[in-house]
Computed example of a mutant assay.
Amino acid sequence: MKQVHVEQIQKVIEAVKGKDIENIFFVACGGSMAALSFGDYFVTKDTDMPSFVYTSNEFIHRAPKALGEKSLVILKSHTGTTPETVGAATYARSKSALTVAISMDVESPLCQEAEFTVHYNYKDGSDAIDCEIGIYYTLLFKLLNLITGEEKYLRGVDQLSKLGELIERNQAKHKDVADAFGKKNKREKIIYTMASGAYIHHAYSFTSCLLMEMLWVNSNAIHSGEYFHGPFEITDYDVPFLMVVGEGPSTPLDQRALDFVTKYSENVEVVNVKEFDYTGVDEDLKEYFGPALAGPVLRLYADGLAEHTGHPLSVRRYMWKMEY
């Protein structure tokens, strides 16, 4: 990891040590919110620290009473220009919270507004450890170590050096099946996604940011644990599902949903995180690395749809084209 990133993350850790933090807020929009949500998942799973996820504008308007000088607010925007997230940083600072911006642009409005910045490199040939996933996971592992004192998170930081290689291996493993998924589903008007645990955030991001935003395919992210409480009634032989079977305590929820959906639908695509290549990752860290690998793998399925529909992922109807 580049020294500048090491120093940025260490400044955040030292600030947290000096603030007697009592709760954490993860605040962003869209795919950035989904990415931050992995932090909330592991903080609430592994610690007794209260943690919350907010979409930026609701964070401002709901004005949570728990927000104050003993709060850590982590905000993320890829470009650092998302107005709602910049506004959320302003609001958090007005409540004396410790604010940390995660972005690719240190000169962006968000990074200028937040007290601390954790910058990541983007499309500059950097190793994965210096890019979005590696930077965020390094910060997350160090925060978890600070809160719990458990050494496994420091092993996690060390093993992030293997992240780039693991992403490449797992993408290579799924490239052909993702392309076949795109070819098979190129004329589908609706594709449901399903997951649970940490991976429900991937289902949300794939649904909202890739299928709906980028590909204009109708979709809904279904939590595996909620599938039997309404959504399973839409299941039929020709209804397409993309299902993530996760690595972690929620796997039984996924398996139960998978057993049913494959019985009644003939178009179920499964991404089984347990079958990922985890070479060099300790057994007790696989559930943390699974979400870091699932995002790049799932992106291939969107690429497959884009290739076979002739609809580039860069095309937008409204976003960035008009006032909204």
Rank of each mutant, 00 (worst) to 15 (best):
D277N: 11
L144Y: 08
A302H: 07
F232L: 12
V271C: 07
K162H: 14
G310T: 06
Q171Y: 01
I234K: 13
G248L: 06
Q3C: 00
D179R: 12
K152A: 08
L143Q: 07
H78K: 07
E22L: 12
H229A: 11
V273P: 01
L258I: 00
A88I: 07
K162L: 15
A302T: 11
Q255A: 01
G295C: 01
G230M: 10
D254C: 14
E269Y: 03
S71R: 02
I167W: 00
V244G: 06
A203W: 04
V297L: 05
S126K: 08
Q112T: 10
L298W: 01
A198W: 02
D176E: 15
V4K: 11
K186D: 12
F26G: 05
D48Q: 15
F42S: 05
D158W: 00
A15L: 05
G156L: 06
V118H: 02
E247T: 09
E69D: 13
F289C: 09
A257Q: 02
V43R: 08
P312T: 02
T207V: 00
E226S: 12
W320M: 11
E84Q: 14
D284S: 06
Y204G: 00
E84S: 14
V16D: 07
I147G: 09
L36Q: 05
L154Q: 15
C209D: 14
S103H: 00
E150D: 13
R316E: 02
E7P: 00
A178K: 01
D303H: 05
D176Y: 04
D236L: 04
T99S: 14
R299I: 13
G290R: 00
V273E: 11
C29I: 05
E233I: 10
T117W: 01
L210W: 02
E287D: 09
K123M: 15
N185S: 11
G182S: 09
L313R: 07
V157S: 15
E107P: 00
V73S: 10
Y288R: 06
S32V: 08
C131V: 05
V273C: 14
M212R: 12
V217E: 02
D48F: 11
M243I: 15
Y264I: 06
G31N: 06
D48H: 14
E226V: 07
G39V: 12
A88Q: 08
L144P: 09
K175T: 01
Y137I: 04
D259S: 14
A35G: 08
I21V: 15
N220M: 12
S51H: 03
V86P: 07
K2G: 01
E168G: 03
S224F: 03
V6E: 15
G248A: 08
V118P: 06
I13Q: 11
E269C: 14
S56M: 07
S37H: 08
D127L: 14
Y153T: 12
A257S: 13
P83R: 10
E275A: 09
H174Y: 15
N267S: 14
A178G: 06
E287P: 00
E150L: 02
L242H: 08
L305M: 12
M104C: 09
G164Y: 03
I9F: 05
